[in-house]
Design a protein around this nucleic acid. Sequence first.
DNA 1: TTCCTTATGCCCCATAAGGGGTATCCCCAG
DNA 2: CTGGGGATACCCCTTATGGGGCATAAGGAA
Lengths: 215, 215
Amino acid sequence: MMIYLNDPLIRIGIVESDPVYLQALESMFSLSPEFELTGVWKDSGSAIREIPGTSPHVVLIDIHLPAVNGIDCIRQLRKIDPDIQFLVFTGCEQGVESVFDAFKAGATGYILKKDGAESLLRSVKELHAGGSPMSRSIARKIVDSLGRPATPGGKDHLLTKREEEVLTLLSEGKMYKEVAIRLGITMETAKKHVKHIYNKLEVQNKMEAVNKWRS
Amino acid sequence: MMIYLNDPLIRIGIVESDPVYLQALESMFSLSPEFELTGVWKDSGSAIREIPGTSPHVVLIDIHLPAVNGIDCIRQLRKIDPDIQFLVFTGCEQGVESVFDAFKAGATGYILKKDGAESLLRSVKELHAGGSPMSRSIARKIVDSLGRPATPGGKDHLLTKREEEVLTLLSEGKMYKEVAIRLGITMETAKKHVKHIYNKLEVQNKMEAVNKWRS
DNA sequence: TTCCTTATGCCCCATAAGGGGTATCCCCAG
DNA sequence: CTGGGGATACCCCTTATGGGGCATAAGGAA
């Protein structure tokens, strides 16, 4: 891993589907003299194609992206250019598994949108200096899970990737019908996934599932 | 407002209904040489009666108290002794309205339990020194709401006290039946409150309502 | 006073959600 | 090669939810 301590500018790329955040981030990094914005992308597809040509030091990436999620995007990009550092930047706090997935995929930082702008800038600098910035609550999730000896169920993943996708949509208030459309499956299959989720988490409804999952 | 920068000890009172937290706080402040614990109370009634006689500089108070909530307790105590500084200390982050209510009632600090012990001690000192310590996310809520020009609805309180109670229970995954039992009303009335909430927040289901409320 | 909001209660009705079963298909581990 | 988990799909059923109306009582504001 290269460390660019002496570089005059931190070259940064942004992958964010939310236009409001994207605009804010774009302004913020364009206006800061310590950064050079190499580009912004609204989806994983274009990000994977175009980012390698721009050689950023750091890529700030949301994991909630349409079609291909940010974690897969990181995985792809790491294969192409392993020198890029990825800072996951997400709006909602999800299960500890998502955090692990992100780090396994090659992310080296994981912060929450709610932490605010100063925190974000500090994190980007810290990441570029070789650190692993993460939000307090994320760090806590990790420490907590390390504290659990042998993982109660023996299982690494309580929920499957598909189940997490379903739960993410449910957590946004989507109905089964919408979940089905988003994932390109039938409503019955979406319901089936939800039933499995409830069994695994030992809950009876969406709200409890989301609460337990996020805890 | 008096500022006690030169006092040798910060006299502190605690109002907390959770016995576990109360024990922890009691130990913490008893053992710190910078503080003098003037007393602890488990409910608003006894706190309102007894706190004025103990002349604390700072009162650390949970807003989730049985019977009379912490905000009303602060309002009452301020009338009796306006020199007392109140630091709201709560477990769960609720809507921005609750935060405003606390400040309007006379609180001058608002922190979350999850911030931890060091943060709490620092906040008490900062409060005593004339500051307004608050958790980062609380500060953000306030800044965000100030950013919204003229408050879209013109209304100060979007949701009524009762509606917030209902929404709190819904956010815990309770069914209408359980909400009704908890609040001592019929299920139909609980449903009615929920309908009002949905109208006000312009949403169609529990999850969206909770998301919008918390944002 | 009158009007409005809040909180309460009850009715009807359509749809969403939750719980159970069964069955393919694919892929990976034993 | 065989079994199991994961993902897909369809069936049945009951209950919970969301949306509408109507009504009353209390309390505050115009």
